[in-house]
Amino acid sequence: MEAFGDIAGGLLVLAQTAPGSEESGGSFLVSPGLGLMIWTLALFLFTMWVLSKVAFPKIQEALDKRANAIRESIEAAERQRHQSDELLEEYRQRLSEAREQADDIMARARRAAETAAAEATAAGKEKREELVAAAKRDIEAETRRSLEQIRKEVADLTVLATEKVTRRSLTAEDQRRLVEDALSEVDFTTLSGSSS
């Protein structure tokens, strides 16, 4: 309790001494001095003069420069982005064009291949048919020639046989006619098989 009394007392002493006498009082705290005010004015005005002449313009200049640089780089970035957008669009377009072209080429190639295959097939068929036809023709021709040969040989043999049987010879004309008659009655179709 004594301590608190002392604190209160001390504060009271402070309060009393504040507006007190010259030496121990605090009145100098609130009494302005003209000399100090003039010192303040002089130093402040000098500071302001130097700052406004030297410091502030340079700081402002640097800040403006940076602001410009930032604006320019933003603009440049926007320009570049715009350009790259355009490029991208162009590339996309080209890509899709290329894809279309590729598809087109593929389709054409497929069509060509199909056509070629069909043509090849047709050509092959034709060739085969041709070959078959040629073979058939050859066979027929050969058959006919063989028949002729046979017929001739039969005729000749018949003539010989007849001569031997009749001991006389017929005129060639008669013989021929007789043989022809005889032969016409013989069916040679059985010789040539099914190819008549």
């Binding site: 130093l43 130097v50 700052l51 410091a55 340079k58 640097a62 800040l63 940076r66």
Partner: peptide, 20 residues
């Protein structure tokens, strides 16, 4: 005087070496 010198010194020093 100290305040004036510090104000001028700091501001002028900084203003002379403003970096981007």
């Amino acid at each position: 005087v100290l305040a004036s010198a510090l104000t001028i010194g700091t501001m002028v020093w900084i203003s002379r070496r403003m970096q981007q």
